[in-house]
Design a protein around this nucleic acid. Structure first.
Lengths: 194, 194
DNA sequence: CAAGAATGTGAACTATTGCTCAGTTTCTCA
DNA sequence: TGAGAAACTGAGCAATAGTTCACATTCTTG
């Protein structure tokens, strides 16, 4: 299952793009509803409403589809985080918004976010997905050090881990009061950093 | 009446117990060194130095071995946590020790702890493993509310999630200064609760 | 020791996996 | 319109999965 993770063919027609998207989205839904272990290429194709042959026209193997999904999700989050970093808001405001972005992202598809958390550590992300991860990490670090210049070297990593854990825990418990969650996280983060 | 006056013939059980333990431990090592997805019953048997037939004499299927492993690990942690809860220490001291127990547990076998975190959410834990989980959760709740009687209803769950995330993050980054980690976690916990 | 119980063995079966490929359908555009 | 390009199809292949079972070995005990 190790190998090239690039699409075999660059889709030129919109039909191709739609098929590719359908495949990635099918994996997302399967991870949400069933799980990682029973995920097979044939089931992916079936859910996507596509033949198994088509699937392998767009992805060289199963892992590549997971990586594409990770890339898709990470891009969404990165866009929000980058916008916050580049905004003219105060450092404190940026941190607040960062927490909000994390909540929004994970609450959008909680089970998917949880499943991908494991997949990300398991799968060999390609260069592109690793770049996203790096950009994301740098953006967060920048914001954290802006507000807490004296924070330790693992502060950004820890803050992300903490927030992620709190959000997950809350989402899986079915909470809906996101304002309350947001203030709990902010409290924990400032307690840790300040 | 089979009043369970078990003679417990020495040799009769020790060989069987050793085989069962070897199987469970083989899974633990495989999860640490390789991962969940490539885990197969034949590989488990091979690592345990046992035939595949023997494996199925002790466990009805692969999942059951994972559950047995989870039970083993949870029991270790529960023993420590219960001892802390039953000790005569002050509430604050109990919280300190609780954090210490979490660190000790996850740092003992970090990769295993991480892998099991995912498995626990995936696999259907039996009644016995669920009981352990419940007891653990109750013990932690008791300690948390002792020190923070006014804490919200999800405080114990959140504190555990936070601490777990910080420890994981630290362990996977290869940190060794456990005292520093402990104080960081305590800070985050008190920041969140206080 | 003898004999039954407990424990251990591994070839082999079935189902399923990831994946291929020879061929068909649909689209594009001169 | 028709012919080449793009997209799609699905039966089927080799590999591997989980699991079974008929049999061998080792232990316990009268």
């Amino acid at each position: 299952m190790v190998g090239n993770i690039e699409p075999r063919k660059r889709g030129r027609q919109s039909r191709a793009k739609a098929t590719e998207d359908a495949i990635v989205e099918a994996v997302a839904r399967f991870l949400e509803e069933v799980g990682l272990e029973p995920l097979t290429t044939n089931k992916i194709a079936e859910r996507a409403g596509v033949s198994i042959g088509s699937l392998y026209q767009y992805f060289p193997n199963k892992e590549a589809i997971l990586v594409a999904l990770i890339r898709r999700e990470r891009s969404l989050l990165l866009a929000d985080v980058a916008a916050i970093a580049d905004s003219g808001a105060s450092p404190q405001e940026k941190i607040e918004r960062l927490v909000g972005a994390g909540i929004k992202h994970q609450f959008a598809r909680p089970r998917l976010a949880l499943a991908l958390e494991y997949v990300e550590r398991t799968v060999n992300l390609g260069e592109e997905a690793q770049d996203l991860e790096r950009l994301l990490s740098e953006a967060v670090s920048g914001i954290v050090y802006l507000q807490f210049p004296g924070a330790g070297s693992h502060a950004p990593r820890d803050v992300v881990a903490m927030a992620q854990a709190l959000i997950n825990s809350s989402a899986m418990a079915g909470e809906t009061d996101l304002q309350a969650l947001r203030s709990r996280i902010t409290k924990a983060v400032y307690g840790y950093l300040g």
